[in-house]
Write a protein that binds this DNA or RNA. Structure first.
Lengths: 232, 232
DNA sequence: GAAACTTCTTTTGTATACAATTTTGTGTCC
DNA sequence: GGACACAAAATTGTATACAAAAGAAGTTTC
């Protein structure tokens, strides 16, 4: 009952490709934080055995997109407000310095790639696909880390961006519009100019803006929200 | 043929406990970088099936202590000089700031714990168990991150410390003695005094010392060393 | 003797079977 | 009707069986 594995029409389904697909779906807010990810369910969807599915879930749990609890299975992670602060504080520590390095090392090809990223983001927004726009906006940040040539730090930022997506899903304030257009554009300009100081400063303020656009008032670690919701 | 699981004499063997055991063994340099970690071999040693062993190896590969290549299996990672620089640069970015936070937040109980750590390190050194001393010295760093109350960053530092252990196994210069005693002791003093500035500065210089005690001259990513070794 | 081609052996990848645990449903008692 | 006990179903954890790939050894050919 295994798939014929026609490499043209049917790219092979590996545990990595499943992790990737789930990761994108979570980034794009098509799967909400807290959603149960049953093994049988996923193995049915992807046409592989639970063995493979379990490997992908383990991968996702290591970047903390997914919570695995023994005998309880996997579900999409649901970061607390404390964790949310931690994630953004970590980003504020890592990314400005990384943007500085990126400004020093960026090539014209890098700039072109980033501009194309921004263009795609705009297109997604115009198509009212805010989930996709958020995903692309995350890629923008990891791409800058990659340009900085610090693969290790880039890996950290990748996980932080992933968790940020969950945090935004949970705590984003409706009032504040997600207007990253200008921030990202200005950053690319600074990188193109190799203006290290400005790149660092723009990244810092961009992250502070994001952080403060979250509603992170303590709600007892998001356990009472159910009670709140039903107390009407 | 499963184990009776007497919880007193036989703590249950989980994939986490295997990962932990391997991690310590690697930290203590009882398993060298590059060593093949066969699944059958490990499942025999720990008395569990390959399923469980595979899960632990996957865990270790996510913190980059282990390299898994498809159809080739797992082996202890062997970081290149480039990766080594990256790891220490990341540490130099993260840890000084973290030490500063730790100085702000440390309690007398924390200080006591750190002092006990240092004591254990000395004991290991006196017993000529330099592997154990290195492992404890790594724990010292992750403990400080934990005191800083940034679990996210602490997690990053944990993986950086782990990889540092591999790097030290590969690139440590014999000439320079591993004299962390004083550095660690001075750091604890700064934390006890809640002297943020000094804690940050001591951590930075400690890491720079470590970094510069490595022999990271390019050797073509450590591929020629075999040829070198056989050219006598 | 070395390169290239066959087996044969070992090792990893995946599916499946079964055991252990949690969750859900049902009936009983008060 | 609600608290409890117990049985049934669903889900996860682990072992094992088999398929696929890589590595080793031996054979042929030049």
């Amino acid at each position: 009952m295994t798939r014929p594995a026609d490499p043209i029409t049917n790219p092979p389904v590996t545990s990595d490709s499943i992790a990737q697909a789930l990761s994108v779906a979570i980034h794009e807010h098509r799967i909400a934080p807290g959603t149960k990810l049953g093994e049988d369910e996923l193995s049915e969807i992807y046409g592989v055995s639970r063995t493979v599915v379990r490997a992908s879930l383990q991968t996702l749990s290591h970047i903390r997109l997914v919570d695995i609890r023994r005998n309880k299975g996997a579900s999409v992670a649901s970061p607390s407000t404390t964790e949310a602060h931690e994630v953004f504080e970590a980003r504020e520590l890592l990314e400005p310095r990384t943007a500085r390095s990126a400004a020093r090392r960026s090539t014209p090809a890098d700039i072109l790639k980033l501009e194309r990223h921004i263009h795609d983001e705009h297109a997604a927004l115009d198509a009212n696909d805010s989930g996709r726009a958020l995903y692309l906006s995350g890629l923008f940040h990891t791409e800058i880390a990659r340009i900085a040539g610090q693969a290790t730090i880039a890996g950290f930022i990748e996980t932080l961006v992933a968790r940020s997506s969950l945090i935004i899903a949970l705590y984003w304030r409706r009032e504040s519009a997600l207007c990253e257009k200008h921030a990202h554009h200005a950053l690319v300009q600074a990188l193109a100019d190799q203006n290290e100081q400005q790149a660092e400063e723009l990244m810092r303020s961009h992250l502070v803006d994001l952080h403060s656009a979250l509603d992170l008032r303590e709600r007892n670690e998001r356990t009472l929200s159910l009670k709140d919701a039903l107390s009407s």
